[in-house]
Every structure is written in C-alpha cells, then in structure tokens.
Amino acid sequence: MTRASAPEPGSAADVVRSWDARADHYLELFRDELEGKPHDLALFAGFARRLGPGARALDVGCGPCGHVAAVLAAHGLEVTGIDLSPRCIALARRERPGLRFELGDQRALDLDPLGGRFDGIVSNYSLHDQPKSLLPGTFAAWASALKPGGHLLVVAKAGDADGVVTDPLGSGIDVYWAEFTAAELASAAEAAGFTVERLADRAPYEQEIASQRLYLEASMPGESGLDAARRTP
C-alpha cells in the first residue's frame, strides 16, 4: 500500500491536518483567554458598536473555542464562525451551542450557504497558518464577502516568521507559522480595496507568546444598510 504524502505546508489540507490534531489542546489553553485581555475585549466591543445591533458578522478561522463569536454575539451581532478543521467546528458547536459554526475556507468563501455577504469580518489570529504569499488573496476573499461599507478587524502577531515550526504552544506537532508587519497587512488590505482606518499594536500580556500584537481596522467603500437606516428620519 502506498503511503499518502503529507499535504503542502500552509495549504488548506495542511490547516485541516494541524488543527484537527491540536484543537482539543488549544481549547484548554484558550477557552477563557479573553477574560485576561481587556484591550481585545474593548476592541471587539467597539467593532460591534460600529456594525450596530443585528448586523451580520463572520468570524474567520474561529478555532475550537468560539470565544470571539460569543463576545460579538453578546454585543448584539448575528455571528457565524467558520473554520477549515472539522474538529474545531465540532468543539466550537459544543462549547457555544447557541451560535452558528460552519466548515469554510476564509481564502475561498462560499457565501450562498452562509446567507450572503456580511456587514463585518473579524480575523483573530486566523492568518498564521498560511504562507505570507497568500495574504493578498485572503484579503481579496474577505473584501468580496463584505457588503458596501462593511468593516474588517484583523488581529495578528508581528514578526518575520514564514514557515514550518514545532508548535510554540506545546501540541508537539509541526505547524505552519507566519507573522506579519503592519506594512504587510496594510498593503494587502489596500490592494483588496479596503480603506485602512487604524493600525495599532500592543505589547504581549504576561501569559502570551512574547511578540507584539497588531490590530488593523478597515472598511469597504460605500454605505452599509445600517448606516443608511440611522440617517433616515
């Protein structure tokens, strides 16, 4: 019998391989992580306020915890989380039974089963499993999934890494690990048609991997339906 070859590092199949293998480990690490990250909680709350109650938000690369989707939903958004890993989706559904989680690839979004375009997209460390060379295409996929005036929030780790490493968070498996500069994120966003509104960073909390955190906030041209409704007397 011929042994199946390993998937190409950073490919969709590789993301499934690595996350199916480490999803349970990461769930234990990160189930309640936002309770110790006031900066991030405030950022997600501000993002939800910008979209407005009832707006549709997509949490790309939601992982096994569903914690970002839960925070956004608590602020009144209608949230869908997607992930390539079946194990991540199974765990997220178990952890957050009142929320919607579906299998999906942020780099090739199929919007029909998700109910069409969204008012906002959040990427909370969803970019680290893929090569930097795929960054422009990922931002383009996000842009195509947003309504006019839609908003984007990206959280990423700053750095130069772009290759296979042993998982820094102790799962014991090899994973693709990419980090980014603020300029790389801004360039990819602008090439996809976004207007970059804010780029910020913060130092890591004591319990985090020792790298700066990057935050990009951007929007698509046009006016959202919610913005128009707010202007209507």
Rank of each mutant, 00 (worst) to 15 (best):
P168T: 14
W142S: 00
D20Q: 04
G98N: 10
Y215W: 02
D59G: 02
A55N: 04
G81A: 08
G225Y: 03
A203R: 15
A141C: 08
A12V: 13
L199C: 09
R96L: 11
I89D: 04
A228H: 05
L111F: 01
A57V: 13
Q130D: 05
A70H: 10
F30Y: 14
L199N: 07
A143E: 03
A45N: 07
N124V: 04
P221Y: 11
G98M: 13
T232E: 15
A48G: 04
L135Q: 04
S5H: 08
S11I: 13
G76H: 01
A55Y: 02
L43W: 14
L109Q: 01
A183Y: 05
R22D: 10
D119L: 07
P53T: 09
A183S: 11
R117E: 06
P53D: 12
N124F: 10
A200Y: 03
L91G: 05
R96G: 05
V154G: 06
R31S: 13
P233G: 14
Q130F: 09
T2W: 09
D119I: 02
P64W: 10
A200W: 07
S18A: 13
E78P: 00
G116M: 01
F101A: 12
S187D: 15
R202Y: 10
D174F: 12
G36H: 11
A192S: 12
T2C: 05
S211A: 15
L27D: 15
Y215E: 09
R87W: 03
I82G: 00
Y205M: 06
I82S: 00
A229K: 09
A182G: 15
H75S: 02
P9L: 12
G63C: 09
R100W: 01
E102Y: 04
S18N: 13
E217G: 04
Y125R: 06
W177G: 04
L127Y: 00
G222R: 12
P136D: 04
E35V: 08
D174A: 14
S85C: 06
F194C: 09
G10H: 04
M1Y: 03
A178I: 12
P64E: 03
G137F: 03
L72G: 01
R230E: 15
S211Y: 12
R31T: 13
S224P: 03
L127G: 03
R87C: 00
E217H: 06
E95A: 14
T138P: 05
G63Y: 03
S211M: 13
A23H: 03
G52H: 08
I82A: 00
T195S: 15
T195F: 08
G10P: 13
A73G: 09
T232I: 14
E28Y: 01
F139H: 07
A73P: 05
G63L: 11
